[in-house]
Computed example of a mutant assay.
Amino acid sequence: MQLAQAQQLVSNAQHAAQREGFHISVAVVDQAGLQVLFARMDNTALGTIDVAIKKARTAALFHTDSAALGSMARAGADLYTLESTNNGMISFGGGLVIRDEQGQVIGGLGVAGATLEADEQLAQEALYG
């Protein structure tokens, strides 16, 4: 994960959020889940900081978008305790896997601060256009 790519993703997410009237936090991590870049828009709830980072880490470490893990991490499901691993994971929308041209995981993107549906939409727009 290159810094320039992370900067572009953050910029894309922030522009989309501003257009939709949301204030968000955005995190980009590398394939090991280590932070490459983080940004919080003005007037964003402080609790979104940790959520955005955990969404990005979840996607990168499990090679799966955070929303896809949701049904598997519910009470009684196979991955019920997933969220308590790796210093905390998130199993709802807004965390996307970042892959290179060969399909290799190079990182994760996390968006938090809008609605759950909008977090996912903003992340998708930031990553895929």
Rank of each mutant, 00 (worst) to 15 (best):
Q124C: 13
D65F: 05
A52E: 08
T44E: 00
E101H: 10
S11L: 13
E101T: 13
M89A: 03
L82I: 00
T64H: 09
S71F: 15
V10I: 10
I106S: 05
L96G: 04
R57K: 09
G93E: 00
S84T: 15
Q124S: 14
E20S: 04
G94C: 03
A4G: 10
G110Y: 02
T85A: 06
A56K: 11
A67S: 12
E120A: 15
E83R: 02
E83F: 04
N12G: 13
E120W: 06
L3P: 03
S71R: 07
T85W: 09
N86I: 00
D30M: 09
Q121C: 07
Q2K: 08
A45R: 13
M41H: 00
L3F: 12
D30G: 06
K55W: 08
Q7V: 09
F22S: 13
Q18S: 13
H23G: 05
G107N: 08
A112I: 07
L9D: 03
A73L: 04
G108R: 02
L69C: 09
G76D: 06
F38T: 01
N87T: 10
A17C: 06
I90K: 01
G93K: 00
A45M: 13
G94N: 05
A73Q: 06
A60L: 08
Q31D: 10
I49C: 11
A118T: 09
I98A: 08
A27M: 02
Q5R: 07
M89S: 03
D100I: 02
L9W: 08
Q121P: 00
G110R: 02
S11Q: 14
F92G: 03
G129I: 07
D50V: 06
T81V: 13
S66T: 09
R57F: 04
R74V: 14
A68P: 11
A13P: 09
L34A: 14
G108I: 08
R19Y: 06
L46C: 11
M72R: 08
A77P: 02
A59R: 08
L79Q: 06
I98L: 11
M1V: 14
Y80L: 12
S84M: 13
L61C: 08
L109R: 07
E117A: 15
M89K: 02
D100E: 15
D42K: 08
I49H: 15
V105I: 11
T58D: 05
Q104R: 12
A126F: 02
D119F: 05
M89C: 15
D50G: 08
N86L: 13
I98E: 07
L34K: 01
M72Y: 11
I24Q: 02
E125W: 02
T44I: 02
L79E: 04
R74F: 04
H63C: 06
K54F: 08
G93L: 03
A13V: 14
L69T: 10
Q8A: 14
L109H: 02
L34Y: 09
T48A: 07
Q2F: 08
V51T: 04
L116P: 15
E101Q: 14
L9V: 05
N12A: 14
Q8I: 10
H23Y: 10
